[in-house]
């Protein structure tokens, strides 16, 4: 039986890919995607750990048909979706006191700047929370990641024409949500 360390060190068939090399190159990307897709409540560290654990488990099955970043993004999106569902249930179980504790300002930021940034991020995060998963993904990739329409369509597995329709609707929904939270 191979250990996790041995498996992680074993090179994949394509281009000498190992979990370590992928992690070194893309861990920050995965963390950013996870944070943007999952919102402020997501445990980004846990999400990144789970993404690369899946990468380690399925690297041998990665056939290289999609770009590595596309494959990583799809894993990240699935992990975030799963974690968001789980966190919603856990948030209910933890109760309001611990929910409030999670909203405490992060250390290291000045109170003023922290408050302003927090308000802005909370507002946009709350508006994004009101979108569907597909709409949120489209907005994150197109508006925040600055990917082209073709790249976003590839990562989401939709046609470019469908992506524009999706983006139009996502933008309209986001503006409605922002108007509601004004």
């Amino acid at each position: 039986m191979t250990t996790a360390a041995e498996r992680s060190a074993a090179p994949a068939d394509r281009e000498g890919l190992t979990v370590e090399s992928i992690y070194r190159r893309h861990a920050a990307d995965v963390a950013r995607w996870a944070a943007r897709l999952g919102g402020p409540r997501l445990e980004v560290e846990d999400a990144v750990q789970e993404v690369f654990t899946r990468v380690q488990d399925h690297l041998d099955g990665f056939r290289g048909e999609a770009k590595l970043t596309t494959w990583l993004f799809r894993i990240t999106r699935n992990v975030v979706l799963r974690q968001r569902r789980r966190d919603r249930f856990r948030a209910f179980l933890r109760g309001p006191a611990e929910d409030a504790a999670r909203e405490l300002p992060a250390p290291g930021l000045s109170p003023e700047g922290n408050a302003e940034q927090r308000q802005a991020r909370e507002r946009i995060a709350r508006a994004l929370e009101g979108l569907t998963e597909r709409q949120r993904t489209a907005i994150v990739l197109f508006e925040l990641e600055d990917l082209s329409g073709e790249e976003v369509a590839e990562r989401m597995g939709v046609s470019v024409g469908n992506l524009w329709v999706l983006l139009h609707r996502a933008r309209a929904a986001l503006l409605r949500r922002l108007e509601e939270t004004r």
């Binding site: 920050a28 963390a31 944070a35 980004v44 991020r121 946009i124």
Partner: peptide, 16 residues
């Protein structure tokens, strides 16, 4: 424009 500014705030957020 407001949505773009708010998205910029999210873009500048540090992750890990």
């Amino acid at each position: 424009a407001e949505a773009a500014a708010l998205l910029d705030a999210l873009r500048s957020a540090e992750t890990l």
